[in-house]
Design a binder for these strands. Structure first.
Ligand SMILES: [Zn+2]
Ligand SMILES: [Zn+2]
Ligand SMILES: [Zn+2]
Ligand SMILES: [Zn+2]
Lengths: 167, 167
DNA sequence: CTGATAGTGTTATGTTATAACATGTTATGA
DNA sequence: TCATAACATGTTATAACATAACACTATCAG
């Protein structure tokens, strides 16, 4: 299962986006979405989303709360959980079940069943496209069971970490 | 939440096994496995597994602890978590992330990446075979990322519950 | 016998999430 | 414009889930 790659030492999936762009795009997309849907993109909601998109990595609810506190917002638990629920409903945030953490969506405004690749050493997380990842998640309908939501998480060790371990 | 069973109204995936057989087989399989591997199938471990396989439904750690207490074992949290970790390591128990609950494996002694179908109304859970479910999880290797473990959970509403809702 | 390992027990604490209720703010629409 | 409903945020308390750290016993190899 081990492939060597000279030149490129990092897992591409973790590094293949221009995050400067990503940040600006994401803010713009969420603004437009809320405008179009007549939903309030309140300072609190904006702040929570900014906290998540800033470093674009999974954060626990209590980490988000700390950040909110530092920025002058209330930092009692329901504040974070309510906003996170709201952002998740609208597809701008996903929960990583394996980490009890939340992450900004990498591909909002497209209906999608996200899959996540999680390095258990460095805890980097990548949201991967179903097709791209080679997962085919073909059958949303299992024997008349109506699937509403899928959770797909792949945990392992990324190239960077596995190289670091063997040096 | 009552079950009607005229003809064939239930989702087959939830009902297609003879649980009497399942229970006996499961106990026998786990005994044999531990024997072969020279591992101790202690009274505590046996009891935890029995609790899980008895009704063959997901149970929270604290529910298991209550049951242990009723049967004369210690019911402090580490007791359950340690045994559950042990049973999970050996593939006889899986964790349902979406429910913070644990369930006896439906197909032990076969290396497998289980997928779960979860009804959010009745909380019934079925462990489904990858092939059977139509999920093909073909690519364990994503851009050099070495996948060690996959979590696949499909949440929705089962036929029984969806019929009940529309009556 | 001695020291290592494994299994269980116990206490305390850490972490994650929600219930319940209070207060302010923004539409709606007689 | 004034009631009222819906929404958003704030606060306190508590529930639910999970682990750290250490103690005690049994087993067994050297
Ligand atoms: Zn997404
Ligand atoms: Zn890594
Ligand atoms: Zn299984
Ligand atoms: Zn159901």
């Amino acid at each position: 299962m081990k492939k060597k790659r000279e030149g490129k030492t990092t897992s591409k999936i973790f590094d293949d986006h221009d995050h400067g762009m990503c940040f600006d795009d994401a803010i713009e997309q969420i603004e437009n979405y809320f405008l179009k849907k007549n939903l309030q993109f309140t300072p609190l909601r904006r702040k929570v989303f900014e906290i998540l998109i800033r470093d674009h990595k999974p954060l626990g609810a209590y980490e988000i709360l700390e950040a909110l506190g530092r920025d002058g917002f209330s930092s009692s638990p329901p504040i974070a959980y309510r906003v996170l629920d709201f952002l998740m409903e609208h597809g701008f945030v996903h929960k990583i079940q394996g980490l009890n953490a939340f992450i900004a969506c990498s591909n909002p405004n497209h209906s999608h069943s996200p899959a996540f690749v999680i390095c258990r050493k460095c805890e980097k997380v990548a949201e991967v496209d179903e097709k791209k990842s080679g997962i085919s998640f073909n059958s949303p309908n299992i024997d008349n069971f109506e699937v509403e939501k899928t959770t797909v998480e792949m945990t392992g060790v990324c190239t960077t970490c596995s190289r670091a371990a063997t040096i």
